[in-house]
Design a protein around this nucleic acid. Structure first.
Ligand SMILES: [Mn+2]
Ligand SMILES: [Mn+2]
Ligand SMILES: [Mn+2]
Ligand SMILES: [Mn+2]
Lengths: 222, 222
DNA sequence: AATAGAAGTTTGAGGAATCAAAGAAGGGGG
DNA sequence: CCCCCTTCTTTGATTCCTCAAACTTCTATT
């Protein structure tokens, strides 16, 4: 049986793998992402391997099989549709839906999920701008540029806010840093580790490098 | 921690207790309702007793404490609001929502639940006519009369369909036996174990005693 | 009263997920 | 080239929920 623990591990392996798609994911990375001790991760990975969801090289690392990746994308689809549903239909704040979706993603049936998808008009992205995999396990991988690496004097639009921490999301919202908002980069100060942008409503915001990395933009499409 | 297993047991104890509120609920009844062997029920009831959710008399039976009853009502509220939400907002059929709600009732937070409640305009009953407990644990106990005991030649209205079996619910729907529908009793045949009713759309339906027991009516309020 | 049967309890065991702590591997720095 | 430190694996235990099967208690019926 696919327990919700298995779903959580597989989803996390997928997300961690995205960070560095070329090499095997080390045990330690997985263990800390899952907030378990390394021994627990080793034990769990063995059962995932027995179920054919990951390829496991002892002392080398792990990688999702095709089946594992399909499962991960399915869980991710549930998670992201739920987040959007909670925001758009039930009116929750975008800063609090991640936690809710973390539980609900294991409880909604496909039938319910597809009803939500329909009601939301088959959305492409969740409230944070993360792409929603299709029911068939397709995911659109768009190349986005972190604000920290963005070229000055170019019109751009916020596409994604890559952090689920409610406190950061509340900060972002308060400062108008939400997907769909247009902006242009005013300047960058390497020594100060900062970037300054002007939003479409003419408000100016300065962010440190850490924060600027989490705001992903795309060249404005006008 | 209150696991979903505990929630399911407590809810089931509450429902079984309603069938015969005067006496203690015997272990065997609980075990078969939960579809576990008697030993499992005994073990679980001990932990419920340790948590202060039930009073347990070995070899006598069990009864919910006040705390246990509050928990049961809370779970029941989640279950029934979810059922209504699934029917009214997502458009699922009333015959299939019980199963869905059985899982979701353990996954939705109070915050999400109260948003659903608001969106549904603080409903009093679920799609099957079962009363929805309030957030404070109040439940309206209405005296309803099973069709099998109803007096002839009186106008009445279907208030509840007391069965969750999808097949029965589909049958009921097909025959117009759903909450809110008016009817009058045409006749009863004790030897045939049957009752015949005329619905408000002038269709006539004959039910055996078993089925007639599940259709609960109230005197028409005109 | 004696006892057969039903109902309930106990015991022993197993699967899932976890942790603590001990042990093994192996890749640099000396 | 070796040993040391980090990373990983193994082992032994625990909690939760479950079953099978043996055992106990109580009731009812002769
Ligand atoms: Mn999320
Ligand atoms: Mn989750
Ligand atoms: Mn139900
Ligand atoms: Mn349930």
């Amino acid at each position: 049986m696919i327990t919700s623990t298995v779903e959580n591990y597989v989803k996390q392996i997928y997300l961690q793998q995205q960070e560095d798609p070329t090499s095997l994911l080390p045990m330690g990375k997985l263990a800390s992402a899952m907030k378990v001790v390394p021994g627990t991760a080793t034990a769990m990975v063995k059962t995932l391997s027995d179920s054919g969801l990951v390829d496991y090289e002892p002392r080398g690392g792990i990688r999702l099989t095709h089946g594992g990746e399909q499962l991960a994308l399915h869980v991710l689809r549930r998670h992201r549709i739920l987040e959007l549903f909670l925001v758009d239909v039930l009116g929750l704040d975008w800063s609090e839906v991640h936690e809710e979706a973390e539980t609900l993603e294991h409880a909604v049936s496909d039938k319910v999920l597809e009803r939500m998808d329909k009601l939301l008009n088959h959305p492409q992205v969740d409230p944070h701008g993360d792409p929603i995999p299709t029911a068939k396990g397709q995911i659109r991988k768009v190349r986005l540029i972190p604000l920290s690496e963005f070229a000055p004097d170019t019109a751009a639009e916020i596409a994604r806010v890559a952090d689920q921490d409610p406190a950061f999301l509340q900060f972002a919202e308060k400062n108008g840093l939400i997907p769909g908002v247009g902006l242009s980069l005013l300047g960058r100060d390497v020594h100060a580790d900062s970037v300054t942008v002007r939003l479409e409503n003419d408000v100016t915001v300065t962010l440190g490098g850490k924060a600027a990395e989490k705001i992903l933009v795309r060249a404005a499409t006008e």
